[in-house]
Simulated assay, not measured.
Amino acid sequence: MTQVGTITREYWINVTGGSVSAIPVGTTPTGVTALTSFTSPSNWANSYGERVRGYIVPTVTGVYQFAIAGDNDCELWLSTTNSAANKVLIANVAGWTPAGNWTYQPSQKSGQITLTAGQRYYVEALHKEDQGDDSLSVAWTVPGGGSMFTVIDGAHLAPIQ
């Protein structure tokens, strides 16, 4: 079983454009770091793209809802298994949202998704920063926790292998 605690952040610098389709994910990234929560550094740079990927490992079985916030364009993908081949787009940001704002655009929230405790689910967030402020965060609501979104912490994340 993969150890929990971090998720993998890959980034590419000097990437022009404002769409996630401009991120050269098929090439070697400029750098790779580990994040201890599903939040990338804010106001980090201009003209870059990043992919944050790994596994979500829930500790409670039940219904979850996900949300992504970022500046600029972002996409959130989740798999029904631990395989990236099964990922589907569950939420996205067109343009930008304020950092940590989970209700700015309807498209930034997923539908309700049932997850099983202890199972690994492949997750991937793509973020393309153009100019100005930049941020990326992914949050969820947890079973029995009400409707408040909280950033997914390292206790529920595992890095890509």
Results as ranks from 00 to 15, higher is better:
121 Y>C: 11
152 I>F: 10
161 Q>H: 07
104 Y>Q: 14
48 Y>E: 05
105 Q>L: 13
7 I>T: 09
97 T>D: 08
152 I>A: 09
106 P>A: 15
46 N>S: 12
126 L>H: 03
40 S>A: 15
31 G>T: 10
27 T>Q: 14
149 F>K: 03
134 D>Y: 00
32 V>F: 02
65 Q>M: 12
159 P>W: 04
84 A>C: 00
117 A>N: 07
71 D>C: 13
10 E>F: 03
11 Y>T: 08
160 I>T: 14
108 Q>G: 03
155 A>Y: 03
121 Y>H: 11
42 S>I: 14
78 L>G: 06
87 K>F: 03
123 V>M: 09
88 V>H: 03
35 L>E: 03
98 P>D: 12
71 D>T: 12
72 N>P: 12
20 V>P: 07
93 V>G: 04
20 V>K: 00
106 P>H: 05
154 G>L: 11
136 L>S: 06
135 S>E: 01
145 G>W: 06
30 T>Q: 01
125 A>G: 10
62 G>D: 13
151 V>P: 09
106 P>S: 15
53 R>A: 02
46 N>C: 04
108 Q>K: 02
39 T>R: 11
36 T>M: 07
146 G>L: 00
8 T>A: 04
51 R>C: 10
141 T>Q: 09
26 G>L: 08
37 S>T: 12
26 G>Q: 11
16 T>G: 12
143 P>K: 00
27 T>F: 05
78 L>V: 12
83 S>I: 02
73 D>N: 14
84 A>I: 01
64 Y>D: 10
8 T>C: 04
113 I>V: 15
103 T>K: 00
21 S>H: 01
